[in-house]
Design a protein around this nucleic acid. Sequence first.
DNA 1: GCGTCAATTCGATAATATTCGAACTATGGA
DNA 2: TCCATAGTTCGAATATTATCGAATTGACGC
Lengths: 117, 117
Amino acid sequence: MEIKDAAQLLSALGHDARLSIFRLLVEAGPAGLNAGAISDALAMPPASASFHLAHLSRVGLIQGQRAHRFIHYSANFSSMDALIVFLTRNCCQGEACLPLTAACDTRDTRRAQPAGD
Amino acid sequence: MEIKDAAQLLSALGHDARLSIFRLLVEAGPAGLNAGAISDALAMPPASASFHLAHLSRVGLIQGQRAHRFIHYSANFSSMDALIVFLTRNCCQGEACLPLTAACDTRDTRRAQPAGD
DNA sequence: GCGTCAATTCGATAATATTCGAACTATGGA
DNA sequence: TCCATAGTTCGAATATTATCGAATTGACGC
């Protein structure tokens, strides 16, 4: 991943509405949610939700798949993964700079982490 | 960390110039770099660099400390750490969704990772 | 075909961010 | 005090982004 790609992803996430959508989908897991459920959950006008969903989709952070009359959106975990790797690569000259991230093994124990809520 | 705070950090990083600065400082480690070295390394006019440094500093992703005539900027690793935790919290319904991040233990082995460059 | 529901696109407005030369402030040395 | 250097702030043009009602497209059942 290059600077431009990473900046595009970060910029897409750097907005309250889009970050809320993305987090919702990240927590929803691979099954995802349809557009109506998203705009409903976040009390956002459908047109606004659609605008932001299109943006997230365009940069590859989420994807939508039509099922009958609904479009199910889900987070693209691998692009989030790549983004985190980009951010932390060659970091901090070998010091242990990310204790919370390190403590999180990206599996089930994460849910028990004192994540600083 | 709340949505608004995270969005502010992501938005700050969501710009080529600022992301380049931040990555430069992340790789520079705790010692950091002074403003001139940064604008020099990135071929950026001092006024532009200063504008972006101020932005990153305002949201807490970096900090500057004066030393004689220089101001040494360095990355704030703990805010990056908190941001990553925020992004990945309660994610993916317990599936192992972040293999690359998981493979990175945030210590010295990271530098040997096949990070997908 | 027609009505209905899910979702998107259009469009016009409003707000916010970016750029960077020039002027300015701060620090340190002669 | 005066000069040089490091860095910031000002300012004004430019560019980008967000908002969301209304119109539109697409899918389904009847």
